[in-house]
Design a protein around this nucleic acid. Structure first.
Lengths: 229, 229
DNA sequence: CGCTGTCTTGAACGTCTTCAACCATAGTGG
DNA sequence: CCACTATGGTTGAAGACGTTCAAGACAGCG
């Protein structure tokens, strides 16, 4: 049971009919996870749809080779777990709270019922899936770039397009990513990522700052993506 | 205008209500593309949902660096173009007929209307998107493998899981992929792909045959994915 | 204080790309 | 009919690039 205000603040659920919202409120619950805590593990049976209220969730998969691949980050307002919900299989990946995180848990049967009964819910789910697909396509593109240099540049430029804000000294990218995380996103080793980004720092192309990155020379980054054939 | 039988043979549309099917028949049309012909180009405005009846479609994207990335192959019964349909942007990638191909064209406004009016259509779209997401996640996994060897092995094993059939001499993978295509899927050069696959041929691990590949030693391939840390 | 995690640097090694060449096949036009 | 072209497959050698391993700096935290 959660209150209607919480629901209304989520864009995804903002335009639900009153009865749909009511159903959601009655059956959904909220849960908090401490930083670093697992939300679910790959293979777990999927019982809920998860909607992030606050914090940040990291969806990652451990390959058989022992390599960890970060599939996506989920930020407030976004949901995760749909894929497993629909086909009833276990989760295809792990989800962990990257920060202290509050999520809404919507039981599977309620989700499926709302999907059947409320057309707007179905539409909002489709929109959500499309967003996720765009993100995944972006990841495929990034990973398809030739060198690690291009991959990192492509990754950061893509984020900058979506979330960057103009600030003094260049475009500010308010997303904190450790070198390890970047490595896990571009399919490279930490050391390589560090070497490349140190060089960028020296060349005044990109700097790691308090709460993200500062892109001083976007065209420099773009040139790296384009050149490295 | 197309006939109802054509629609009924497509699993995706098999359980439509009669009136939904009728609407679809009245407004959809069929078009054929010769081998190698473009179906749409990146950036084109998106006017239709495409459903493949026969043939094979290749969805690819040309990166700024000049590298071509194959995002997906679409086989009979599957649809493509949804992503662009929903948000009204241009297509995010190119689609070309890899073989002589027949597709159903469903105009955008009809698609959106059916989506709104028929819950089953919405459900089928969601199921479709989920499949596509699985495919994309798989691509991310493949591209995240360490060496090119692992990436190719992972790619072929994933296909083998979904489409492989047991035959004499091993598991038959009835999917024709040129070395060039494999290269464009795993993010490597043709020469590298050739060298690796020639070695596998000599080692009796995997052979290129008439209409696809024959995996003689699946555990050998799996070992390659797991080992190459 | 020692621990753990992130960031960092260096040097050696191995993989993949690059470039250049070659073969086979199929389709095209003179 | 043959030369010509395009496409797909193939091989070799040189060099660039990324990984690996080993080591150290630094911060936050029990």
């Amino acid at each position: 049971m959660i209150d209607a205000d919480t629901i209304k603040r989520i864009p995804r659920f903002a335009d639900l009919t009153p009865q749909a919202r009511d159903m959601l409120c009655r059956h959904a619950s909220v849960r908090t996870y401490e930083q670093g805590m697992p939300i679910f593990i790959e293979g777990d049976p999927c019982e809920f749809l998860y909607v992030v209220l606050e914090g940040e969730v990291r969806i990652a998969k451990l390959l058989e080779s022992g390599r960890e691949v970060i599939m996506d980050f989920i930020w407030p307002g976004e949901s995760f777990g749909e894929v497993a919900l629909m086909d009833g299989d276990g989760f295809p990946a792990n989800a962990t709270a990257k920060q202290p995180t509050r999520v809404i848990l919507l039981p599977r049967d309620i989700y499926l019922r709302m999907l059947k009964e409320c057309p707007e819910v179905a539409r909002s789910i489709i929109r959500d899936l499309l967003l996720r697909m765009r993100a995944l396509s972006g990841r495929v593109e990034v990973l398809s770039e030739a060198g690690v240099r291009s991959r990192i540049a492509h990754l950061l430029l893509a984020y900058a397009r979506d979330f960057g804000v103009e600030g003094d000294g260049g475009r500010m990218l308010p997303i904190r990513l450790s070198r390890n995380e970047i490595a896990a996103m571009v399919g490279a080793r930490v050391e390589t990522v560090i070497r490349i980004m140190s060089q960028w720092h020296k060349d005044d192309i990109l700097h790691t700052v308090e709460r993200g990155f500062l892109i001083s020379d976007a065209s420099g980054l773009e040139a790296i993506v384009a050149d490295e054939d």
